[in-house]
């Protein structure tokens, strides 16, 4: 399995020269399966540039949405294949008793927020509730389960042969819970992430920032690492960067997360941090290679002020 990061930012796009290395686009990852099929995880603004890289004759595009916060769907309306009549797009997302997935997404892709309506898209598009049981896409078996965030939110476990990827970009498993002490059955996302070869996980806050953001649906870095150790993840990709976290700040965050991982008994080099355009080969052995340049050191920046996060 190969993963390419097209957007690693959380909450809102964060362009700017101080964000160039990690990138400013919101959540979107491309997963290439051993069968050649492509899965797209979330449709943040990163999906726009991903769309330009896809071959126009790709038979079918599969998009898995964890939830419908804007940073996970904003790019959908600018995804080039949506505007090609020959495209066939399937979109999975969380179900809701309130309205269908299509109706909920149409609140964004409709006037006055959008110049086009879902029904006007020339592509063939279907909206599907993520099933309660596992399902198959190409060579992958997918499992979706609800996780702790604000509003109905899924995490995904994607198994291709003997390799497993887990994607939980928005997650606060430590809310009201002592992650280090709880039995696994009481930890949100445990089964999804258990023994994953690569866990892509929320790392929105530093431990110092978290006290002002409890209950906002995101993890402080200590919980991210504790969760990853508890589930036995082989590698972790820190994801969903706070829009105020600059390149230098994220370098520091990465270093402290890696040190925490090692202090909890994890192996050196297993904690990585998501950079836009980075490609990661996920292998069952737990080893793999990241082809993006490694982060470089920089001076620490002060913790940013409060802001809304989604």
């Amino acid at each position: 399995m190969r993963v390419k990061v097209w957007g690693a930012r959380g909450s809102v796009p964060a362009p700017g020269p101080e964000m160039n290395r990690y990138g400013g686009n919101t959540s979107c990852c491309e997963v290439t399966l051993s069968s050649g099929e492509t899965l797209i995880l979330d449709a943040g603004t990163g999906i726009r540039t991903l769309g330009f890289s896809l071959p126009p004759d790709l038979p079918r595009i599969n998009i898995l949405l964890t939830h419908l916060h804007l940073d996970h769907i904003q790019g959908l309306m600018f995804f080039p294949p949506c505007f090609r009549a020959e495209s066939s797009i399937r979109i999975w997302g969380p179900s809701s008793p309130e309205a269908s997935l299509e109706a909920r997404i149409a609140r964004y892709i409709s006037a006055p927020l959008s110049p086009v309506e879902v029904r006007e898209l020339p592509c063939e598009v279907s909206f599907l509730d993520a099933p309660a049981s596992e399902w198959q896409i190409g060579s992958a078996t997918i499992r979706a389960e609800a996780v702790t965030h604000r509003g109905p939110t899924l995490g995904f476990r994607i198994t291709d042969g003997d390799t497993t990827l887990c994607y939980i970009p928005d997650h606060e498993p430590g809310l009201g819970a002592a992650l280090g002490e709880l039995d696994p059955e009481w930890i949100s996302g445990f089964n999804l992430a258990c023994d994953a070869d690569l866990l892509i996980h929320d790392c929105q806050y530093t431990d110092e920032e978290y006290p002002g953001h409890e209950g906002w649906g995101h993890s402080p870095i200590d919980d991210t690492i504790t969760f990853a150790r508890r589930v036995g993840a082989k590698r972790v990709l820190l994801f969903h960067h706070d829009p105020l976290h600059t390149d230098g700040f994220l370098d520091d965050l990465h270093r402290s997360a890696a040190a925490r991982w090692v202090s909890l008994g994890g192996s050196e080099g297993a904690v990585e941090i998501a950079q836009e355009r980075a490609e990661i080969v996920v292998e069952a052995s737990g080893t793999g290679e990241e082809t993006a340049p490694a982060p470089v050191s920089s001076t620490k920046v002060p913790a940013p002020a409060n802001q809304v996060s989604v």
């Binding site: 702790t148 819970a177 949100s188």
Partner: peptide, 16 residues
């Protein structure tokens, strides 16, 4: 893998 993970609503109820 633990097959007995509680559904999220029970996890959140316990946290509450």
């Amino acid at each position: 893998m633990s097959g007995s993970q509680k559904p999220l609503e029970l996890i959140l109820a316990r946290n509450l």
